[in-house]
Write a protein that binds this DNA or RNA. Structure first.
Lengths: 197, 197
DNA sequence: TTTGTTCCTGACCATTTGGTCAAACCAATT
DNA sequence: AATTGGTTTGACCAAATGGTCAGGAACAAA
């Protein structure tokens, strides 16, 4: 790893931190430079502009997220086990705090999504799988699209809205964290119960 | 309604629009003034500063939200009917687009919440109600706090993440809107199925 | 008509912020 | 030692932005 790559790695790390925490509009190039331990001029040398740097960070975030929610591994597990793994994987990602960042920025500028998601070809494999389960009558008849939304919501929202949940449920950070330990499993069970015959 | 109140109402309306769409950092006082159809100086005459105006808008938003999620009306409906009404009410509020605003700003500055929520005394009435249902063995044993989170998530998240859902599920605006028509009912049924014995 | 009050505005200000640039630095090559 | 090419930086710039202020318009009270 040469000198330049090291610096760029430091920049990306700092930029990720700032953009995720403060959002595009709240982020200052000077702060990124400070956190990365370099000058602002050097920052601009490596990444031409704020927009440019942001695009890079946003792409990385989206590329980590999309495969996670757009694939439904085809393996030997039965559907209940699959639901369990899906919620676990999703929750692990979502804990990193990237989810609010993605949503916030898409909302600020919806173009961000359209530019990047045109390619995908066949319908979501999650949908296909649950359509089949419906046809085979293995679950209570449920619109797979709604099911998808329910599952995503249950997994993603607590990570985004944790401040509010803590307050309203009167939980300390520690208590909330403890509850979240078993959350993936509880969520999966809840969903399974809802559609099991 | 005197001259001043009319102007202030126009300002508040414009400010709400801007703050909700663009967030605190993305909002420009000049734009609020333009939308309200007055000068920036006049804007400052009525609301001393940007912070001041923002506080007002944020308070209004929070005051519309909190009672909605913190109360569980005690009436003659049975628990399934209550779930139905709760989801319906919550979804109606959430459609207005205020939810992402609240979450975004709380995340930017958690103080916003702590300042405003210290007063509430007894545990959330939703929790109390479902604790009782558990004790009476009327539902499948479920941690009421988790249930609360599940319900909130299912209702709030689709309104926040709609851009993403549309893309991933390959739905047009019209299709998505149609699906959302019956969403409150579907969500309630889903939740009821999950905890019904 | 004069005086006073409320509301409104153009012009202006200080600071912040993304971005540029010439000069310096430094390691490798000749 | 001299040259070269990539990297870093302090100083600087133009635009944007929140905020101020003196004065003007509108209207009512004296």
């Amino acid at each position: 790893m040469n000198e330049s790559t090291i610096t760029e790695e430091k920049i990306l790390q700092a930029a990720r931190l700032e953009f995720e925490r403060k959002g595009y509009n709240g982020t200052r190039m000077q702060v990124i430079a400070d956190v990365a331990g370099i000058s602002k001029a050097s920052l601009h040398y490596h990444f031409r502009s704020k927009d440019n740097l942001f695009q890079r960070i946003f792409d990385d975030a989206l590329n980590a997220y999309i495969p996670l929610v757009n694939t439904w591994k085809d393996d030997s597990l039965n559907w209940e086990e699959k639901v369990n793994r899906f919620t676990t994987d999703l929750l692990e990602f979502v804990q990193k705090g990237t989810m609010l960042f993605i949503i916030r920025e898409i909302n600020r500028n919806p173009e961000l999504l359209s530019e990047r998601l045109k390619k995908s070809k066949s319908p979501n494999s999650f949908i296909l799988y649950f359509e089949q389960l419906n046809t085979d009558n293995q679950i209570r008849q449920t619109d797979p699209r709604l099911l998808y939304i329910f599952l995503q919501s249950i997994c993603c929202f607590p990570a985004i809205n944790n401040q509010m949940f803590k307050k309203v449920l009167r939980l300390t950070d520690k208590q909330y964290h403890e509850m979240m330990e078993g959350y993936a499993r509880a969520a999966a069970t809840f969903i399974i119960n809802a559609i099991k015959k």
